[in-house]
């Protein structure tokens, strides 16, 4: 039998106004912290505490949005603190996705130069790693994926672009992401995918869910065009 820890002993619980609380496990971006957040999400869902509307996992914490007309915050915090966490959380609770990427981003040459590699090597290195969906935010369907191989880690652009095209595969510090829609953005663009990351006519609308695993593979321009037509992107 596994030893268990109560949330109250593993996290601090803060008010996020009167309609949400945040169950905080630390500050930073790392897989161990993230797995605690996902374990808490699963354990809290299984506890069926009345009044909880939805939960949002992030790098550092799990936000619990609730209906204050159904449960008082004090009671909710007590109930959350009492939830038992497994001592060894399941490390990959999600789906694994294979994401085709045409590595022709406008920043690829700069990324390669800064990393002391050829553009082909930089692309291959990006595609060699397995990534974890830490969280979604910023835009509908925008998934924060990590961790990027050390050699590719570069800061955000000093001057963010006003228009990053939909489908752009981008990197920043230890993370990589795909822009699900056109948006301003400061991440460095390494390539693009023909996949539709977010579509409000689908259910669920986002291809990636928090906790999923992502692998990238390089494709050529012809395959990109073919897949784009198929996906209608």
């Amino acid at each position: 039998m596994q030893a268990q820890t109560k949330i109250i002993h593993a996290a601090s619980i803060h008010s996020l106004g009167d309609t949400a609380v945040t169950v905080e496990f630390g500050d930073g971006i790392d897989r161990a912290l993230s797995s605690r957040v996902f374990a808490a999400r699963a354990a809290i869902a299984a506890a069926h505490i009345p009044g909880i509307r939805e939960t949002v996992p992030t790098f550092r914490a799990l936000a619990v949005h609730f209906d204050p007309d159904k449960i008082r915050q004090e009671q909710l915090i007590a109930a959350l603190g009492d939830v038992e966490l497994p001592s060894r959380p399941d490390t990959s609770p999600g789906t694994t996705w294979q994401v085709p990427v045409l590595y022709d981003g406008p920043d690829l040459a700069d990324i390669a130069r800064a990393s002391g590699m050829s553009p082909e090597e930089a692309a291959a290195l990006h595609a060699s790693a397995g990534y974890h969906v830490y969280m979604l935010g910023f835009l509908p369907g925008f998934a924060y994926l990590g961790d990027l191989p050390e050699k590719l880690r570069l800061p955000r652009l000093k001057e963010p672009r006003t228009r990053v095209p939909k489908g752009s595969v981008a990197i920043a510090d230890q993370l990589t992401a795909i822009y699900p829609s056109q948006s301003p953005g400061g991440w460095r663009l390494i390539g693009r995918t023909p996949l539709a990351l977010f579509d409000h006519r689908r259910n669920p609308p986002s291809l990636f869910q928090p906790g999923d695993d992502i692998r990238f593979h390089a494709i050529g321009p012809d395959e990109f065009d073919h897949l784009s037509r198929e996906a209608g992107t």
Binding site: A20, G28, F59, A61
Partner: peptide, 11 residues
């Protein structure tokens, strides 16, 4: 750096 967390209207 501050690692992102959840927001709510009113924050």
């Amino acid at each position: 750096d501050f690692a992102s967390d959840a927001t709510v209207p009113g924050a």
